[in-house]
Simulated assay, not measured.
Amino acid sequence: MPTPFRYTEPLPPKSATGTVAEVYAQLALDFGIAEPSTFVVLSSAPELLAPTWALLRESLIAGAGSRTGKELVALGVSLANKCPFCVDAHTVLLHATGDHALAERLARGEAPRSEEHARVLAWGQHTRVPGAALEPYPFPREHAPAYLGTALTFHFINRIASALLTENLLPAGAQRFRAVRSLAGRTLARTVRRPARPGLALALLDHPDAGEAPAWAGGTPVGLAYAALLRAALSGAGLLDTDDQELVEAILQDWDGAHPPLSLSGFPDRRERPGARLALLAALAPYRITDEDVAAWRRPEHTDHCLVHLVAYGAFLAVDRIESSFSAQISQEAV
């Protein structure tokens, strides 16, 4: 039987224990999907799985503001990152909010009829460019922690999905049919429209430190979840030697949000520096990762846990570059 997993073999969710089982229980309750592949693929690294779920829950699901608006941000981010899996997922979730006409316009590649919806979608797309002017916000300022958190969540999840999953949200690409999208959305409608109490996912985190939360989060649970994911994802740097770490981080420091050329000029050769190449691809073009790239890096000692961590490290370097520009803009406003 084909699976959605490209390079890993996650354990069946029914065998989950500990933190992984707790995350799956919250997913079923608050996300409406018991075993979404975007989270199952992280299950070999519970220390990544828990904060990824916490950031999504506390921003998209329990954070302030319209669920439709936040789904539009997530969709805009997914379009900017060229992640068809996540584009399809958020189209289905827009059906779940009850915005069926909006979902289908976007599925056809058309712009929203509402100027407000169009502005929110465009804002999500612009967040890929570090330093892009993101204000004035197309949503109330008091909702900014949830909207910013949603954008950062999907800059990370897009990269994980593009690197480690196939493109099909549903078997055989069934999500391409309007009736299937609509039906899938309707099955999630009750969960999506039900209010969620903020902060419940924080119990899954390992001693979250309020002092590490970014200023843009405004003291909300979003900030603690973001700080926990940053700490877990950047620990993957240990899978690279010092020279490779410095190369990858230097390239990300100068990244302007552009997608790399087809030639992948400037990327390390997979035979000489396979780890650096894989991390950079995860950051800038995870949809360009090939079987050869993974095979060149992977050794007998490189478990699924290691691969997930290396991809997460590269992915989060891009997220951190984007987040740093959020923080810098907020700091300038405060002066």
Score class of each variant (00 low, 15 high):
233 A>D: 03
294 V>K: 00
152 L>E: 00
323 E>Y: 07
143 H>E: 15
317 L>F: 01
229 L>M: 02
90 H>V: 07
171 P>H: 15
260 P>L: 02
53 W>K: 06
318 A>E: 04
88 D>L: 10
253 Q>L: 12
283 A>H: 04
8 T>G: 09
177 F>N: 11
10 P>N: 08
70 K>N: 15
263 S>L: 15
143 H>G: 01
288 R>W: 03
20 V>H: 03
74 A>M: 04
278 L>Q: 11
324 S>R: 08
109 G>E: 05
327 S>W: 03
226 Y>D: 03
85 F>N: 01
172 A>G: 14
20 V>N: 00
204 L>V: 04
19 T>S: 10
242 T>S: 13
280 L>N: 04
291 D>C: 03
163 A>R: 09
55 L>Q: 05
277 R>L: 11
170 L>F: 10
220 T>N: 10
124 G>I: 05
204 L>T: 01
60 L>S: 08
332 Q>F: 08
185 G>F: 01
179 A>P: 07
16 A>P: 01
248 V>L: 03
142 E>W: 12
19 T>W: 06
78 S>A: 05
242 T>F: 03
216 W>P: 03
266 G>I: 05
201 A>L: 08
243 D>E: 02
113 R>N: 15
313 Y>H: 09
255 W>P: 09
318 A>N: 03
161 A>L: 05
11 L>C: 12
130 P>H: 07
191 T>K: 10
30 D>E: 11
50 A>V: 05
168 N>A: 14
198 P>V: 10
134 L>M: 07
41 V>D: 00
210 A>I: 04
157 I>T: 02
